[in-house]
Amino acid sequence: MTLSRNWIWMGITLGIFILSILHVLLGEIFVSSSDFYTFLFDFDPDKIEHVILKEFRIPRLFMCFIAGSSLSLAGLMMQTLFQNPLAGPYVLGINSGSSLLVALSVLSGWTFVRNDFGLIFSALIGAGIFAVLILFLANFLRNSLSLLLVGIMIGSFTGALVSILQSVSEANSLKLFTLWSMGSLQNVQFGQLGVIFLFYLLALLVTMYYSKSLNALILGEKEASLLGINVRKSRIGIICATVLFTGLVTAFCGPIAFIGLAVPNLIRILFKTQNHRILIPACLLGGVVFLLICDICVELLSFITPLPINAITSIIGAPMVIYFIIKRLA
């Protein structure tokens, strides 16, 4: 058992390494490994390959790491907290907040919101408002099931508002909103990476701090409480980390589907454990591998047709999950 698990760890790590190199070197403009070398040690702002590496390839790779791991970890925590393998990072409705604000700024024709701040800002504000709302409710509601229901209700409610906005908006804005809702790893700039990483790190530390609580919560909130876990505090902490993870990703990349749902399930099947001290690092790395594979597909297929990352994650993810489930049953 231990041996095979070590092999999985090695495979994932090696996979990340190879996929990252592939990811950086792939693209419409040919970038050679020597370009990459000079980029690292002798940056020339006038050299087009260097500019492309700095402004496009590196931020995109970085976002694969951040978004892939954030969404997987958020999904893992939600699945554990709600004791439901169908839960994902979006059950709390954080993405609904982003989506509503983005829809407002793109579709309503509030040009000042749209042009002076940009979509990322709208998405951040939306995620923030809804995060505060969810945390308030989490503190107020007695059990997690109610919270899950409330999250779903909020999602439907804002979804309806967005639909109304969509129905009254003109074609161009509608297309812009649709594009946003398909997700993109390409909107982040080099200069933003620091801030993103900081928030990511914060969320990751909170997640790690609650790994003991998460382990006990596998048995449900009542049992966890009898095992000495402060369930109320843990719930707030876990939600905080989830909100940070998903808010960050939704703001900078739009709502990216499926990873948060698929990866934690895949990891549990692969590692055959419920120990979060293993699941957390495994989901972190697994999410990165998964999103790297998806984004490399986007890059390769972009020579034929442009595809949204959101479509690829589901197209690759769903058969994978089905395969593993069938294999496990057989």
Binding site: I218, L227, G228, R268, T273, Q274
Partner: peptide, 17 residues
Amino acid sequence: GIPHLRVLEYVLLGRTP
């Protein structure tokens, strides 16, 4: 029973305190 949870892992959860 809980999916993917092994017997020893489960008993270890008793050590949580």
